Amino acid sequence: TTIPRICEEAGVSRSTFFHYFKSKNAILADYRFGFADRLEEFADTLPSDLTGKEKVRRLLQFDVRQNLEGGAMLRQSIISSLDDNPEFRGSHDRTFERVPPLYARVLRESNPQVSEEYCEKVALLITRLYWMIWQSCILMRDPYDFEQELMDSLDMVWDGFGLK
């Protein structure tokens, strides 16, 4: 699509568009980076009586729904991020800065007997697992396999974590 078409659909002028975004890719970057904000907000709504595993499962499911509902726009943003695009460079780093600490916090709250360092390592593993399955299912296969693949993988590795 074109910037004039985006402006027309959004009901804004080109100058307003360029006030907020320097390019079409900047829209995709903003869209993509907003996921972590929404995930953090959702985490705060989870019932406190859930186990850490159930909380992480719900966080992953929420994230999956956000990604799948994003459709082609999100898939394109991820494909663009895999290229050497300066607007997306470091996006994985930014994601890994925010999401694993959120999972670690959830795990630590549900497992006070386990060290913070262990919860951080498990959280990083879960985040990496998510990205590996995301890339294989969304970019290379049917996107509707993604949630089931992720949940099956989480179940397979969870018993080895020793967490609730």
Rank of each mutant, 00 (worst) to 15 (best):
E69N: 13
F62K: 07
C137R: 14
R75T: 05
F33Y: 05
M132Y: 06
Y20F: 07
S81L: 02
P47A: 07
I133M: 04
A10P: 06
M156I: 08
C7L: 04
M140P: 00
V99L: 13
C119S: 13
D93N: 12
V56W: 04
M73Q: 13
F161E: 11
T95R: 12
Y144H: 11
V12I: 15
R108F: 10
G160C: 05
A29R: 09
R65P: 06
L129M: 14
A72Y: 00
S23M: 04
R94L: 12
R14S: 09
K22P: 07
M151S: 04
L163H: 13
W134G: 02
S136V: 14
S153G: 03
F161G: 09
F17A: 02
E54F: 00
E8A: 08
E120F: 02
R75Q: 09
D44Q: 13
E147T: 02
E109K: 03
Q113E: 14
I79R: 15
S80R: 10
Q61V: 01
P86Q: 08
Y144M: 12
D145G: 05
F161Q: 14
Y130F: 14
P101I: 00
M156V: 09
V122R: 10
L139M: 14
T51N: 09
E54Y: 00
T51W: 00
C7Q: 13
Y103K: 08
L39C: 09
V12C: 13
A43D: 02
D49N: 10
E147A: 12
F146A: 06
E117D: 12
L125M: 10
E97F: 03
G70N: 12
I78L: 15
E149L: 08
D37C: 01
G34M: 03
L59V: 06
G70W: 13
R89G: 05
D37K: 15
T45Q: 06
V114T: 15
A29P: 02
R141L: 10
D155V: 02
Y20C: 01
M73W: 07
G52P: 09
R14P: 05
P4R: 07
I79K: 15
D93P: 04
L125K: 01
D142H: 10
V106E: 13
K164R: 15
S110V: 04
K55Y: 11
F161H: 14
D37F: 01
Y103D: 15
S80E: 12
Y144C: 09
N67F: 11
F18D: 03
N85P: 10
Q135F: 02
C137Y: 03
F62M: 06
T95E: 03
E9Q: 14
A72R: 07
M73D: 08
F146V: 14
L28K: 02
I126A: 07
